Computed example of a mutant assay.
Amino acid sequence: MFSEAQLYSPVTTGTDGDVTVHLSEEHPGVHDSGYRERRNAIAARALAYRPGEATPRIEYTEDEQRVWRIAAAELSRKHERYASAEVLAGARRLGLAHDHIPQLDEVSAQLVPLSGFRYVPAAGLVPLREFFGSFADRIFHSTQYIRHHSAPLYTPEPDAIHEIIGHANQLASPRFAAIYAEVGAAVARLETDAALKFLADVFWFSMEFGVVRERGEIRCYGAGLLSSYGEIEEFRGARLRPLDVREMGTAVYDITHYQPVLYCAASISEIEEVVGGFFATATDDVVAATTASPTPGSRRPA
């Protein structure tokens, strides 16, 4: 299981109102004062946002735009080779810009007609219940900062490239968007932290790091794979397991390394049936019964 806080640099507000993003010592931008000031300013805009207000528009620098252009071009090529047909069809309908960083309101304007989802800003970590629960209203909380320009194809934390190139291309599929909405509905039924954590881990191994077999090849549909220049080249070397909600929700894994075990669906329909079906029926009692039961051995091997 993972602690979602490890994915984000902590954001704090001082007594003077100053917002600070606390980068780890391993972060590529930790010793770049300009980058740190930039991150603080973008986080402050997100923290000041209130629902119903206009989404903050970020005036991105040329360094940030260059990072986006590099990552968007490289990932687009990777998607053609490794992404599932459902993701590719959604991406074509969405038509994200490759020459500049889309503002969140631009992403929303393109997504809403396709799946009803819209983006709102996040400074960093959004608590699990709020993040997943917002899916019921077809809202996705997205960071707006960009990884450090010294490493355009790497980030230790989710940035706008992950949130937009990974999740928006996925959410452009009505079939995947419907699964997200079921996640949000499930959160409203869950009362215990243990059940919420189980749901988050199933989401991790499906909508973040899910793979599917298509025409004899293993293709990715998870946003974490779609937005990772390195891991999208390596995921076919992972040990593949059949979809199994109990395993997915109880697996122990390290978020800081490429995932050595992935769960492979036989089709998009199986993702809807197994993963979507779990989210659609999840309650505290269902999760408790699932974790208590032995892992079934009847599903097709990948």
Rank of each mutant, 00 (worst) to 15 (best):
Y49R: 11
R50D: 03
G52Q: 12
E53F: 05
A54W: 01
T55H: 05
E59H: 10
T61C: 09
T61S: 15
D63W: 01
E64G: 07
Q65R: 11
R66T: 15
V67E: 06
R69Q: 15
I70R: 08
A71L: 08
A72M: 13
A73F: 06
A73E: 13
A73N: 07
E74D: 13
L75V: 06
S76C: 04
R77C: 02
R77V: 11
E80A: 12
R81V: 09
R81L: 11
Y82P: 06
Y82I: 10
A83D: 13
S84M: 12
E86N: 04
V87S: 07
A89H: 11
A89F: 10
G90A: 09
A91E: 14
R92Q: 07
R93D: 04
L94V: 11
L96R: 01
H98E: 04
P102V: 09
L104H: 03
D105C: 03
D105H: 00
E106N: 02
V107G: 02
S108E: 10
S108K: 12
Q110K: 13
L111R: 02
V112W: 01
L114R: 05
G116M: 08
F117Y: 13
R118Y: 04
R118C: 02
V120C: 09
P121N: 12
P121C: 10
A123L: 05
G124D: 10
L128T: 12
R129M: 08
E130M: 15
F132T: 00
G133F: 01
G133C: 03
F135I: 10
D137N: 14
I139S: 05
H141E: 04
S142D: 04
S142V: 01
T143R: 01
Q144L: 07
Q144M: 14
Y145G: 07
I146D: 07
H148A: 08
H149G: 06
H149C: 11
P152N: 14
L153P: 02
L153E: 03
T155W: 06
P156F: 04
P156W: 03
E157L: 06
E163D: 12
E163F: 01
I164T: 11
I165M: 13
H167N: 13
A168V: 07
A168C: 05
N169M: 07
Q170V: 08
L171T: 03
A172R: 07
A172S: 10
R175S: 15
I179C: 00
I179Q: 02
I179V: 13
I179K: 08
Y180S: 06
A181Q: 15
E182S: 15
